[in-house]
């Protein structure tokens, strides 16, 4: 479905994406993993032919450089947050995209039903909640029933309920045989949706692997909150990162992502570095922004 060869995108002297090559087979679900600035978003834009990258990109046999329009007709795209004129009414937006996607208005209605936005046609885009916006974006992406869905951190601005709804839809799409490529920095999403993970770091593809190899756990990934002396928190974060853990240090304290069956590991690591852990807490539902780690 997707073939990328030595894709490089430079802005000035900085290479946002640098020599990335990979392939995605039809029906496969692939995650792009990496911190902010790793090049996920740029890579997605290159794949859509919005940015003209060096190297070679083919989607469904369409070259991104020469047949960008045809390529994009094979792709449904869901952005991080739906950006559409705030004054536009939902129905009007939907019929506009139906025109662009060359599908009848009845199809647009059908999709609004599917994402449970029916009855909201007169609402303006600015009045939609984050979750509704993402459901609208999903509906737009699915208008023409494209074989490939590309999502750029689709849940990062959503609350837990919104996240769950979007993930549920995506899993259903995967089951229907859609190819899915999505950028994410949430291990739980990657683990539940992706067959493969492409790990990006500073624009380079450093690993092409499976979620289970990245986080070899059947028990899923949990967030562990560690309580250490305040003045040693940043040292602790450094030590944990050095040991390969995902760390988030914010107002809520020091959080570490841990596989469900090895929750004690960070505590041991800190212990070896003479950092005393006073207490810990397992946050099953809480996923901080790991990308800032």
């Amino acid at each position: 479905m997707i073939r990328a060869e030595r894709v490089t995108m430079k802005f000035g002297r900085v290479a946002a994406v640098n020599g990335v090559s990979f392939e995605v087979a039809p029906g496969e679900s692939v995650a792009l993993w990496g911190s902010n600035g790793a090049g996920k978003t740029t890579l997605v834009r290159c794949l859509l032919g919005i940015l003209r990258a060096r190297g070679r990109i083919e989607v469904g046999g369409c070259d991104a450089r020469r047949r960008g329009k045809a390529l994009r007709s094979l792709v449904g795209y869901v952005p991080q947050e739906l950006a559409f004129h705030d004054d536009t009414r939902l129905g009007s937006a939907m019929s506009f995209f139906a025109g662009i996607r060359r599908v009848p208005v009845s199809r647009a209605r059908e999709l609004l039903d599917q994402v449970e936005l029916d009855g909201h046609e007169r609402k303006r885009v600015r009045d939609l909640s984050g979750g509704m916006k993402q459901r609208l974006a999903l509906a737009v992406a699915l208008l023409a029933d494209p074989p490939l869905i590309v999502l750029d951190e689709p849940t990062s601005n959503l609350d837990a309920a919104g996240r769950a709804a979007v993930m549920k839809s995506l899993v259903a799409l995967k089951q229907r045989g859609k190819t899915i490529l999505f950028a994410s920095h949430r291990p739980d999403e990657v683990a539940s949706l992706a067959d493969r993970v492409l790990v990006l770091k500073r624009g380079r593809l450093i690993e092409d692997t499976r979620p289970s190899l990245l986080w070899p756990s059947e028990a899923g990934v949990l967030t562990l909150r560690l309580f250490v002396d305040a003045e040693r928190e940043s040292d602790a974060a450094g030590v944990l990162r050095g040991a390969g853990h995902l760390v988030n240090l914010n107002g809520h304290g020091l959080c570490v992502a841990v596989p469900g069956d090895r929750k004690a590991e960070p505590i041991e690591v800190l212990h070896r570095s003479d950092i005393r852990v006073r207490d810990f807490q397992v946050l099953a539902d809480y996923q901080p922004d790991w990308s800032r780690s």
């Binding site: 939907m94 208005v105 046609e121 007169r122």
Partner: peptide, 11 residues
């Protein structure tokens, strides 16, 4: 004028 009525009318 916005063509929302088209979407609602048929419903």
């Amino acid at each position: 004028t916005e063509p929302i009525s088209r979407m609602q009318g048929a419903r």
